[in-house]
Computed example of a mutant assay.
Amino acid sequence: MFEKNKTYLITGAAGFIGYFLARRLLEQGCRVIGLDNLNDYYDVNLKKARLEKLRNYEQFIFMKGDISDKEAVFGAFETHEPHIVVNLAAQAGVRYSIENPDVYIQSNLIGFYNILEACRHHPVDHLVYASSSSVYGENEKVPFTETDFVDHPVSLYAATKKSNELMAYTYSHLYKIPVTGLRFFTVYGPMGRPDMAYFGFTQKYFAGEPIRIFNNGDVENDLYRDFTYIDDIVEGLVRLLEVPPMADGGVPHTVFNIGNHRPEKLMDFIETLEKALGRTLGREVLFKKVFEPIKPGDVPATFASTDRLEKAVGFKPSTSIEEGLQKFTDWYCEYYQVK
């Protein structure tokens, strides 16, 4: 599947998805250049732990740098001449975009612009970039399909991701760069992001604190999320890396959903997490719960259609939350040495 003579540049390589993608490519004998600024949006030690694992591979080269620094981005392209670029560096988080909008403009817009410019001046075989299920906003038609109208984002984060898709399309049109955008749906798993709900709930449990649930306590009209396990995300990603879109008289740009196509009620997800943690610890686990109104920028449901992905590469995510959360809680308790 992988061409070992090619160089892969992964931005955000110390991040959650970036780490697992880089590891998968390195295990296949590929040469991987990792670019990451190691910012402190969440625990830097976790990013460093991921990075240390990647440093065990001879074919891995790490460059500390920020994609919003044009000189750093162009330096990576000029030095390593990547064939395939995967842009996973971004400022993540819906709620944080309301508190600190500046960093979203800096990273998600200026940073992505720098990546596009680098691909323009140093042509690549394929540019793959992270979009997000948040572009669907409050769409009521489910499942969400890639052809849906997505011009009403409800958070700045979502607006930057929609902007990425427009920018990528334009550069693909003007400079014939083969570009693929990936709309990820609520990614979770071991070594994940501490700012994600499942991770935070687990931290709160061990701190003896209640978890905050933003659904008004309305179990009948609970929030739905298409939780997607990290291994499924990476499998979809690596399959798409080797099939860049063709111009065929048009624009070589396309987008894909990568989601589990099986949305779960938030309360069911929490109950499954309690059971998984209980199995890891060998005792009953019940979170203390506080219910609050839904937060600005949050959406009531996410639900991915994966038909386009399956048609393109013969794959659709299938890991159950029971299996995925068990792997997470087993890792969490071992990593943080809690019991």
Rank of each mutant, 00 (worst) to 15 (best):
Lys6Thr: 04
Thr7Met: 02
Gly15Lys: 06
Gly15Leu: 06
Ile17Asn: 00
Leu26Pro: 04
Gly29Thr: 02
Asn39Pro: 08
Tyr41Lys: 12
Lys48His: 08
Phe60Lys: 10
Gly65Gln: 09
Ile67Gly: 03
Gly75Asp: 14
His80Tyr: 15
Val85Lys: 00
Leu116Gln: 03
Cys119Gly: 10
His121Ser: 14
His121Trp: 12
Leu127Ala: 13
Tyr136Gln: 04
Phe149Cys: 14
Tyr157Ala: 03
Lys161Thr: 09
Leu166Cys: 10
Val179Thr: 15
Val179Cys: 08
Gly181Met: 02
Arg183Phe: 02
Thr186Ile: 13
Met191Leu: 14
Gly192Asn: 04
Tyr198Cys: 04
Phe201Tyr: 13
Tyr205Thr: 07
Phe206Val: 03
Gly208Thr: 01
Pro210Ser: 09
Ile213Arg: 04
Gly217His: 10
Val219Ser: 14
Leu223Tyr: 04
Ile230Leu: 12
Ile233Met: 11
Gly236Phe: 01
Leu240Asp: 03
Gly249Phe: 12
Asp268Met: 12
Phe269Asn: 10
Gly278Arg: 06
Gly282Ile: 08
Glu284His: 11
Val290Ala: 09
Lys295Asn: 08
Thr302Ser: 15
Phe303Cys: 07
Phe303Glu: 00
Ala304Phe: 07
Arg308Tyr: 14
Leu309Pro: 00
Ala312Cys: 09
Thr319Ala: 10
Glu322Leu: 13
Gly324Ala: 09
Leu325Lys: 10
Gln326Asp: 12
Gln326Ser: 13
Gln326Phe: 05
Lys327Arg: 15
Tyr332Val: 00
